[in-house]
Amino acid sequence: MTDLPKTAEPARARLSPRKKQQISRAVQYALLVVALVAIVLYADWGSLAQNFAKVDVAEHALPELFTIALRNTIIYAVGGFVFAFVLGLLLALMRLSQVRPYRWIAVVYIEIFRGLPALLIFLMITFLPLALPGFQVPFGTYGQGILGLGLVGAAYQAEVFRAGLQAVPKGQTEAARSLGMSATRAQVTVIIPQAIRMVIPPTTNQFVALLKDSSLVLFLGVSGEYVELAKFGNDLASQYANATPIMVAGVTYLIVTIPLGYLASRLEGRKGRKP
């Protein structure tokens, strides 16, 4: 028993924490180098370039890539976003309502539309005319796409708004009410404007998610002037039996989504810095 410390002592001396860290770092770099070498040696670069980055195929995507595809992506995304924003705010207010059935309706809606794959909603929308004879979604394909994106987006946006509304201090309502404002007036003038300000960063992220989900419009069976980026890329890719148009569409998404992502984190940062 007495020589226990003695055996522990040399063990510690053999590998200092600094030494251990150096070894760990070296192993990580070695793995990275091995992976890179393997990729460089075994990938068929010529074939990859032929299939994913063929310049003359990419050229065929212009100018419709921007004039039709990107334009439509933005129409679907912005339209769906406006729909989701308005319905989301309404659902959030219902979710926090004193009237119990309103709360139930909001909860059921939010759970269903967050729980289902967005794709399923889009597929259902294509069957709407069968279910409701004579019913037409206004604005045709645009309307259908915007409806699908809006219905799904509203469920997420409702939760964003709920968090914002609940984050407004209770004293704000008390101050408004003690000035003689009605409950509704206090919500509209004092609470909702503050909640919207607070949820600008997460709402920006919601818009990015919605912009990506606009690719699901593909499943509405759109064609011609209604195609958005994903459908556009996919059609051209089939036509030329080459993946380059899909890559081009992907890069176009990133041109929009990455700056928006940075914007969202900038806005978050600013909010954090303010007292």
Partner: peptide
């Protein structure tokens, strides 16, 4: 009835 609160409760926006 005017009311003044400990935490002021001004509307920050």
């Amino acid at each position: 009835i005017g009311m003044v609160f400990q935490q002021f409760n001004l509307f920050p926006h």
